[in-house]
Each structure stands twice: as C-alpha cells, then as structure tokens.
Nucleic acid binder design. Structure first.
Lengths: 207, 207
DNA sequence: TGTGTATTGATACGACTGTATCGGAAGCGG
DNA sequence: CCGCTTCCGATACAGTCGTATCAATACACA
C-alpha cells in the first residue's frame, strides 16, 4: 500500500525541534506551529505524529530523560572501572556546560524540571529517574566504602541522598549560566564536593 | 484631590496573586486576566498597576527573590550566633518543604528559575542573589575555619561554591516533591551535607 | 499505468492572549 | 453641594493558541 514513512524517526525529529526551541526561549515558546516550523514540516504533520500537544511534550520530555539517564550510565563506578573519587568527579564534571550543546541541554532540563513542579506525570518520571540514580549511586558508594574512599563520618545511605541533590543542583545551576561566564566557580564546587564526600583533600593532591 | 489608593500595597497583592497561580499551575497559567481574577480585581486595574506583563513578572520575581534572601539572612552564622554546623543545618532544613506554604514557594521558585535559563534579566537577578549568598557563606565558612569546624581537606572558597550549588539543589528538589511524599530522603541529604562539610560524623552525635 | 490508500498542507474554528481605549463611578478640595 | 481628578470595569482589537476538517498529493501495488 501507499506512501510509508518512518514514523518514529520523525517523532524524534519533532521532539528534537521542540527541545531546540525550549533551549532558546523556554517551554513558553513551544507551540505546534513553532515546533513544526523548526522541524521544517507543516503543522498538520506534527498533529498527525502527536495528536495532542501534551503527548508531544511528554514524548520530548521522556526523550530528554533518556538522554540524561544514558549520560549517567555511561560512567560506571566500581571494581574494574573508575575509582570512586574519579568516577564521582567525572559524573559531576559531565554536568558542567562547557560547550553550547550541554548548555542547551541544561536549559531544556530546567524547563522540564519546572513543569515537573506542577504536572504530576512529569514529577513521577523524575522520581523514577531518581530511583535509577539512587541504585546506581548506592552501588558506587558501596564500592567506596569497601575501598575506604568514603568520608569516615558519612552514612552511606545519606551520602547517596546528598549526591542526588548535588547532581540536581549542578545541572540546574548550569542552566542559568550566561553564555560568557566562567565555569570556574562550578569547577570549584565539583572539587569541593569530591573532597567532602571522599574525605580527601581538595587542596594538594589532584590539580 | 480625588480618590487615592495605596499603589504599592496593591502591586504586592497582585504579585502575590501571580505567585499563587504560579505555585498551582506554573507560569504558563499566568495571564493578566487570571491574575486579576485571583487578586479579586478587574483586568483593567492590573493593567494600571503594571502597564505590561513583563513588568508584572519582573516585579513578582524580585519580590520572590527578596523573600528568599530574607529567609536566608534571618539565620546568621558566626561568633555569638549559631555555630557553623548548627547554622548550616538550619539553613538547609529551612528549605525543606514541610508545610504547604514552603512547598508552594519552592514551586514558584522553580518556575522563575527556569525562566532565568532563558531571560537574561532573570539570570542576572539570580546571579546577584548568588553574590549575596556567596559573601554570607564566605563569612560563615571563615568562621568555621577559625573554629576548626570545616572538614580538614576542604578549600574554603571551594566549599562556598559547593554550598551554593547545594542550596539550589535542595530548593529545587523540594519543588517537585509530590504532596504526600516523605521528606526523609531530603532530611538525610541535609545530615550528610552537614557531616561532609564539617567533617563530623552524621551517624552518632546529632540525632 | 491505473487505483486505492496513507500522508500532506491549508484552512476554519472558538478560545484565549496582551494591549489600547473609553465612559462612568468614586472620592476629595473647594 | 459642586467640580475635578483619579481610578475602575468593560469593551475592542489584532494576534496566537490547540484542535478539527478536508481537498490535494504522493506513493506502492495490481
């Protein structure tokens, strides 16, 4: 039969267009028409791929969540991989918006994050992501305890919660960084975070 | 001459109405008409107080920033006041959304925060707030160093940056907490943060 | 090559947006 | 009590929103 088209690929393309707009002007600038224009197709085409705007937003959101989850899962901390301090440092540095792509991604994240404060579905998705990060961090912190790399006074479970909050803070602080500003303060925060959680010194050894 | 009205008071009232809406449905639900209805006045009256919507948003934002700044400045850490650990714990616990008012405030904050990722004026205001917090934290950390309460390996300047990020993370994580959820994870994060930064133990001494 | 169906762009609709304009209500100085 | 100035609510306007509808198009198969 006639005229077939790769639907999933185009759905992802439309979602990417939405994120480009969201990175530029926030979720407020996102409409069926603007997204269609950014994607280079007509508004009618967008309507067919996503019958309603909520579905479009939800899809783009889940796509963004997946991208962030993938970014985290790329760095595994544990036996045979990176040590705890190095791994933690890598995760946190990965959130620093050193290039435009990462800065754009952070701004999109901030937009969706704010929506999660108001739309329960979004909040649930972020809570799920928390769950994933929690188990990953639990494993990493457990490994740190084995290696004696966790700061002596820290309760492992509590350390996991601290790191969760820290990651959110890094990511969102990054979102509001103006284009020309220096990343040094954030780099300092990363150094301090690694030092505080591992109990090591941030002054002499590394850098 | 005729008919006088307290303009500033009503401007604040309108801004408060805006924030109530923002806490409930986000900045997307904010329009001249909805704000007017929430404030119990006509749309024309809002227009007189705020000729343009941007001015209204900016005013409400600055009001919210002032409220947050005031919340922080209420707790002074230093000689004669609270010790560093207690003061830090108090600041962080103050961000926990234990009541509805605080949760609403956090959601409003998230909305404005996301806008700061996209509107340079908002970003500048938050950067100014960072400046304020930075000097306050510098004093507190300096005091901690004197008292030997700072974790031994931590660079004071870096510790300040870490705390800045941490506060943002606490506040924004709070914003997306569903109404019924427990605050225990966040309380754990606070305990860990205090322990990690002071170098003390989070297991036995306090709690 | 013709045919039938999946896809498309355009157009229509009602609701809502921000903003401008304006006639009447309201209150104080005389 | 009057006049004048400030305030207020309503209405008007052009634009955009999300969504529905529909004729025209483009393609795979016979």
């Amino acid at each position: 039969m006639p005229k077939y088209v790769d639907k999933d690929a185009r759905r992802r393309g439309v979602a990417a267009a939405l994120r480009r707009i969201a990175a530029r002007e926030g979720l407020e600038g996102v409409s069926i028409r603007t997204v269609a224009a950014e994607a280079g197709i007509s508004a009618g085409a967008v309507q067919r791929d996503f019958p309603t705007k909520d579905e479009l937003l939800a899809f783009a959101f889940h796509d963004a969540v997946d991208a962030v989850a993938e970014r985290f899962s790329r760095i595994r901390i544990g036996p045979g991989r990176a040590g705890f301090a190095e791994g933690l440092r890598a995760v946190l540095l990965d959130l620093l918006p050193v290039d435009d792509e990462r800065r754009a991604q952070a701004r999109v994240w901030a937009a969706f994050y704010a929506r999660a404060a108001v739309v329960p579905d979004f909040a649930r998705t972020l809570a799920d992501l928390d769950g994933l990060s929690r188990t990953a961090l639990r494993a990493a912190v457990g490994y740190a305890v084995e290696q004696g790399e966790l700061a002596p006074g820290l309760d492992p479970e509590e350390a996991v919660e601290l790191l969760l909050v820290l990651v959110d803070g890094m990511w969102l602080t990054a979102a509001r960084r103006p284009p020309g500003a220096s990343v040094d303060p954030q780099r300092a925060a990363v150094d301090a975070a690694v030092a505080a959680v591992t109990g090591a010194s941030s002054r002499e050894p590394r850098r």
